[in-house]
Simulated assay, not measured.
Amino acid sequence: MTEGKASEAQRRATKRWEKNNPERVKYLRNRTAARTFVRHYADEEDIEELLEIFKKENPNYKL
């Protein structure tokens, strides 16, 4: 089994940070999934639908 590049201490620190920041971890994972979908899988229809959802439902959208 390969050990990866991170030290054991770094892996423990990352795990501890993730445990202490579950909402941020959830946000980052969802953002990554959305970006991956848009970049690699979405077609024009998907993008149009996502933009409509963003405009109608996202409180951060400014007219």
Rank of each mutant, 00 (worst) to 15 (best):
T32F: 01
L63E: 14
E45Y: 05
T36H: 13
K19P: 00
L50T: 00
F37I: 01
S7F: 08
E57A: 07
P22W: 01
L51W: 10
R29C: 05
N30Q: 15
T14Y: 08
A6L: 15
V25D: 06
T2N: 10
A34I: 01
E8W: 03
A6D: 08
R39F: 12
E3Y: 04
R35S: 09
F54P: 00
R39L: 14
T36C: 06
K26Y: 04
T14D: 13
L51C: 04
E18F: 13
N58H: 10
N60V: 05
F54N: 13
Y41H: 11
E49M: 08
N20L: 15
K19L: 09
A34Y: 10
K62F: 07
R39E: 12
Y61Q: 09
E44V: 06
R16H: 10
T2R: 14
H40W: 13
Y61P: 03
K19N: 12
N30E: 15
F37E: 02
I47K: 14
I47H: 03
E49Q: 04
N58D: 13
E23C: 03
S7H: 01
H40Y: 12
H40G: 11
T36Y: 09
M1G: 10
I53R: 08
R11Y: 08
R24I: 13
E23N: 12
E52Q: 14
L63Y: 02
L28W: 03
Y41C: 05
K26P: 00
E45R: 07
L63D: 13
R16N: 13
A34N: 04
M1R: 09
R29I: 02
E8S: 08
A42I: 02
A9M: 02
E48P: 00
T14Q: 12
R39D: 08
V25A: 06
K55Q: 11
L63G: 14
K55G: 01
Y61W: 15
E48G: 01
R31A: 12
R24S: 09
K5H: 08
N30D: 15
N20T: 13
E8I: 13
A34H: 03
A6E: 15
Q10T: 13
L50H: 03
